Simulated assay, not measured.
Amino acid sequence: MKVRPYSEVDVFSSEPYRGNALAVVHDADGLSTEEMQRFATWTNLSETTFLLAPSSPEADYRVRIFTAIEELPFAGHPTLGTAKAWLDAGGSPRLDGTVIQECAAGLIPIRVAEDQLAFEAPPLTRYEPVDEPLVQRIAEILGIPRVNILDASWLVNGPRWIGVRLSSAQEVLSLQPDRAKAGDLEIGVVGPHESTEETQVEVRAFVGGDPVWEDPVTGSLNAGLARWLTDTAVATAPYAASQGTVLGRQGRVHISLSDGKIWVGGQVTGCVEGTVRL
């Protein structure tokens, strides 16, 4: 075992401990996949990341991203959280104002501006309507009539999200899904707020088969939803999404569109600094 720098950050909230926590192991070169997965399972957070030396000359660092049960090629809140942890530990980006992260999904640019970070959403690797039998199953999982689902689309960008659109934020907040029926499906639900609200949409994320059944705030899902909602003219960027409300969180995800590219941003706060023996 080796003593390595360790940090925990809170992602997508202006108030510490009201967003989504991320564990970050620094100087993780030399750890095996099995050791990383074991530690990620032990932290029992939505994700744990491991900072490594980059293999690409364009990247500032390389990261591996683990849930409690598997490794992901990409995830949103770990991308912003890892960048913040790297910067706080003294990292200096090669490009002024932009961190380049290397992960299994490729190189991910991350803008650093004042008190907010934003990543460029990677392309969706599966982006198509959901078959009707699966939509009916999702309605049963969510405990709502099939007619309440206005639309559904695969939004795979690392995690295997299925986006589900309801008619209102209140419908989203009222959901009481049946975890036992979800299997390994990853379901993201979105509905619009009234025009007087601070945020334009409410989002909830349900991850079947994962110890963290409802994810507090989810960058990858919001990236996929943004692509889908703007492509179908349901939403216009820029807009803000709220997530984690029913969990007592105050997640705020800021979506913008530049040259056809989706950017997903939010505030990140460092909360824990220390060491870990791995």
Rank of each mutant, 00 (worst) to 15 (best):
184 D>T: 14
136 Q>A: 12
180 A>R: 10
144 I>L: 13
83 A>Y: 03
245 T>Y: 13
66 F>G: 00
41 T>N: 12
137 R>H: 15
243 Q>T: 02
109 P>S: 11
190 V>T: 09
85 A>I: 05
205 A>P: 04
11 V>N: 13
60 D>Y: 08
207 V>M: 00
244 G>C: 10
237 A>L: 09
173 L>V: 11
36 M>D: 01
175 L>Q: 03
43 T>S: 07
6 Y>R: 05
17 Y>V: 14
194 E>W: 10
165 R>H: 08
114 E>S: 13
155 L>H: 07
157 N>A: 14
105 A>H: 11
196 T>K: 13
269 T>Q: 15
214 E>D: 04
249 R>A: 09
29 D>K: 05
48 T>H: 01
43 T>I: 06
50 F>D: 00
253 V>S: 06
136 Q>W: 11
64 R>P: 05
26 H>Q: 10
62 R>D: 09
246 V>F: 10
75 A>W: 01
226 A>W: 01
152 A>H: 07
195 S>R: 14
210 D>H: 00
226 A>T: 00
117 L>V: 04
271 C>M: 11
244 G>I: 10
151 D>H: 14
27 D>W: 04
277 R>V: 13
251 G>P: 03
225 L>N: 03
90 G>W: 00
117 L>M: 07
15 E>N: 12
233 A>P: 02
47 E>P: 06
16 P>S: 02
48 T>P: 02
206 F>D: 00
141 I>W: 00
96 D>Y: 12
226 A>Q: 01
19 G>L: 13
72 L>K: 01
85 A>D: 08
18 R>W: 06
181 K>Q: 15
78 P>A: 02
167 S>R: 13
247 L>G: 04
17 Y>C: 15
220 S>P: 08
76 G>A: 06
112 V>C: 14
11 V>F: 13
59 A>R: 02
109 P>F: 14
92 S>F: 06
274 G>E: 09
4 R>D: 03
13 S>I: 08
225 L>H: 05
1 M>G: 12
13 S>E: 04
182 A>R: 08
262 I>G: 00
86 W>D: 08
234 V>A: 07
54 P>A: 10
49 T>C: 02
268 V>F: 08
235 A>C: 12
277 R>L: 12
252 R>P: 05
173 L>P: 11
21 A>G: 03
73 P>Q: 05
71 E>Y: 10
189 V>I: 12
72 L>Q: 02
133 P>T: 05
164 V>F: 02
265 G>T: 08
71 E>F: 09
93 P>E: 08
140 E>V: 05
98 T>P: 11
229 L>W: 01
87 L>P: 02
56 S>L: 05
196 T>I: 09
219 G>V: 00
257 L>V: 06
176 Q>E: 07
21 A>I: 01
90 G>E: 01
107 L>Q: 09
254 H>G: 04
223 A>V: 07
161 W>V: 07
33 T>D: 15
82 T>F: 04
119 F>S: 05
97 G>P: 05
200 Q>S: 02
133 P>G: 04
215 D>Q: 06
11 V>H: 13
42 W>S: 00
95 L>N: 11
187 I>K: 10
99 V>H: 04
91 G>T: 04
270 G>F: 09
132 E>Q: 15
